[in-house]
Design a protein around this nucleic acid. Structure first.
Lengths: 142, 142
DNA sequence: ATGGCTGCAAACGTTTTGCACTTTT
DNA sequence: AAAAGTGCAAAACGTTTGCAGCCAT
């Protein structure tokens, strides 16, 4: 668990419980955004008694702290990912296999243009793409 | 109800029931994306016996036909909007009052660049902004 | 020791499903 | 008459809440 996270939690008087630590580590170790159940399942491998409720409460807490981002691209559940050092990135989601690809290095210039053109005080944004990943695209065209 | 929609439904052997018509009209008459319950409430003003289930089933159907887009920006429920002639637009959502502003005339050039840079076969995308609308921004800074 | 955190069970709101009946074509 | 669609009731699902007890600080 990264030291910056520890510091942020401590400075907010948030206790470093075992459950919390593991939940954060699960997020740190995941290459993809995870649903609360996924996080729960991975957490219970380390701390078997962890409750789903605890996962939900911690995700909400971490989201409030700006450490975690909640994504709404899936019909069944929200997905959560750690916000990386360089800010958040965008995703391409495969409608066939559910694979999520990170889209790195996207120019935020365009985003800024939009932000400037609206009267909203913009705090956050989502940009998601849906379609078929390379593998599924090939399989389905056979 | 627009004639193109009637034609699309007919060519797909989908019946033009009263409920369906009203649901579509509710969407046509709304300036903002609506939650299923909203659509239900407006529909029952015309057809009091309409069931929420019917609303859900029709939204799913219309989404499948590509007439309606489902948006996931709200924690409590999905929101639905008719896809306009010129394709879909993007939204700015106020976290305080829930107001949704349409962002028209956004260059899709940037989107295309991203689409071309990924191996995904992109079929759709979402771009949403979150923050405070002008009114709420002012009120909260008092 | 005290405030924050957890587990459990129960509740909640949204969405889905099965089935008998109705409506459109 | 056939096919599609609806209403109703019940269930399923993800998520939230209340509360008693537990744990990190």
């Amino acid at each position: 668990m990264k030291i910056e996270i520890v510091n942020l939690l401590e400075s907010n008087k948030i206790k470093l419980t075992n459950e919390r630590k593991v939940i954060i580590e699960v997020l740190e170790n995941s290459l993809l955004p995870l649903a609360p159940v996924d996080i729960y399942l991975r957490t219970t491998k380390v701390l078997p008694k962890t409750n789903l409720t605890t996962v939900y409460r911690n995700l909400e807490l971490l989201e409030g702290l700006g450490l975690v981002k909640r994504l709404g691209f899936n019909r069944n559940s929200y997905y959560y990912e750690l916000i990386s050092d360089r800010g958040h990135h965008h995703h391409a989601v495969c409608r066939s296999c559910g694979k999520v690809e990170d889209l790195e290095n996207i120019s935020e210039k365009f985003i800024k243009e939009i932000v400037n053109s609206t009267k909203f005080k913009v705090e956050d944004h989502n940009l998601e793409f849906f379609g078929l990943c390379q593998t599924c695209s090939k399989e389905l065209s056979l």
